[in-house]
Design a protein around this nucleic acid. Structure first.
Lengths: 243, 243
DNA sequence: CGGCCCTTTGACGATAATCAACGGGAGTGG
DNA sequence: CCACTCCCGTTGATTATCGTCAAAGGGCCG
């Protein structure tokens, strides 16, 4: 199989016959010849190094971005100075839509690893959506999906214990790897414990202790950020949520 | 001034010259003659009694709704049986967009009081959005707004103390009343302590105790669900967030 | 009047935060 | 090459916030 950043949404080679799309990934992919028009407005490439910022909270909103490789973290800082990690974006996922409402990004996006993203200028996406009903629908769905995901996260954070939160998080990462045809059980966490804790509303110490307990109970094996889920069903039982 | 449900988005009388709109409220209002077309697809009325369900989690998604009067609560039940209140919708606000992504509502909406809503069939809204760029943009913004609001709520619930959460909640309610030209300080809470607690990730007892403390510190006066914010700045200081 | 739900208040306890110390790896500079 | 620092992660001891359990009062409606 090709390296991930050269694969199309169908995980075939570049210019796969099914989608004719080589610059942008799953979430906006439409099985239709119209996709070529979308492909034309997408800015390629944009390689990012670890720590590079894709956009900053408060800066003018221009584009949304599709991740092609690597991993991006989005976080926002509240007026009171609290920092909140609002999401991690993996290849095939789209970020930046939070900026639409106020014409400014409400969060900062930073690369956790060397990453590649596609830039999709929003004005052009808007005009194109007026011509391509399927694209408009896709984009409505994408945003609606982000809303329901946020609401699930809210439930997780406000109703579940530390163990349940961490278990759910690991299963979510696993599921997203599976979607990309990668291992369900073995993968690398691109973010620090700090980031995981912040995202889940826990301290770094609690995250570390919970992972320690999972390890002791033979649910997982961890070495730094390398993770192996030894007992998927066991972890699901802890999470009490089906992923 | 007319009763709220008879007022247009500009808080004037029915058929106000500025907007020619008498069926749907602020969030989708566009200062443009095109609005008439939108007005045509909106279903009027729909009076709801306290406890009536507007839609149910898992049922087919057909429409989004604009609240005209009263108050609606949205909540979802996770696979594990946890109930999570995801939002309260007051006059001028729109709910139901969570159903777009999966063609099914991901939450249940129930009237907290006698309420009136307008139904906006989504398929028609979609087609109309293809013709009216401003409407499309408005809807994108509406959804983006919901995303940023959810993320603020997540920060509140995962990073702030019980007192900060309740104070922020009261200030949010106050701000939304102010937008409707109603009193900033004195209003009625349409939801139970249970609902507030669930929404904020707290138990009913904690909510009650926090309100008791606010009362003792002369920040508020409460009598059941009737609230008077005696010291707005004091409450803002507790919330540490500017509303 | 009686039952039910909502709310308040108190006593107690558990979960996760805080405070603190330490080890390891990466990068830097001598 | 080695010392140095910085960041990340782990682990332990203690604390505090909020949840749980329990009881009781008030309002609404049949």
């Amino acid at each position: 199989m090709l390296p991930e950043e050269q694969r199309c949404p169908h995980n075939e080679q570049v210019n796969c016959a099914n989608c004719r799309l080589n610059s942008i990934c799953l979430p906006l992919a439409i099985a239709d010849d119209d996709i070529i028009k979308l492909d034309e407005i997408v800015q390629r490439g944009k390689p990012l190094h670890k720590g590079d910022k894709l956009y900053r909270q408060g800066s003018d909103f221009r584009s949304v971005y599709a991740v092609r490789s690597g991993a991006i973290k989005a976080y926002s800082v509240s007026p009171s100075g609290e920092e909140q990690v609002t999401g991690f974006y993996l290849p095939g996922e789209i970020l930046g839509v939070d900026g639409i409402s106020s014409h400014r990004y409400s969060s900062t996006a930073v690369a956790l690893d060397t990453s590649a993203v596609c830039e999709i200028p929003f004005e052009q996406l808007e005009s194109l959506s007026l011509q391509l009903p399927k694209l408009q629908r896709h984009f409505f769905q994408l945003m609606s999906r982000e809303i329901t995901d946020d609401q699930k996260l809210l439930t997780l954070v406000s109703k579940n214990s530390a163990e349940e939160r961490v278990a759910s998080f690991l299963l979510s990462m696993s599921a997203r790897h599976t979607r990309r045809q990668l291992s369900e059980q073995r993968f690398h966490l691109p973010m620090s414990r700090q980031d995981i804790g912040n995202f889940l509303g826990l301290t770094i110490e609690t995250v570390s202790r919970v992972l320690g307990r999972f390890k002791k109970n033979l649910l997982i094996e961890v070495d730094g950020r390398d993770l192996f889920i030894a007992d998927l069903d066991g972890l699901r039982a802890v999470a009490r949520v089906n992923h």
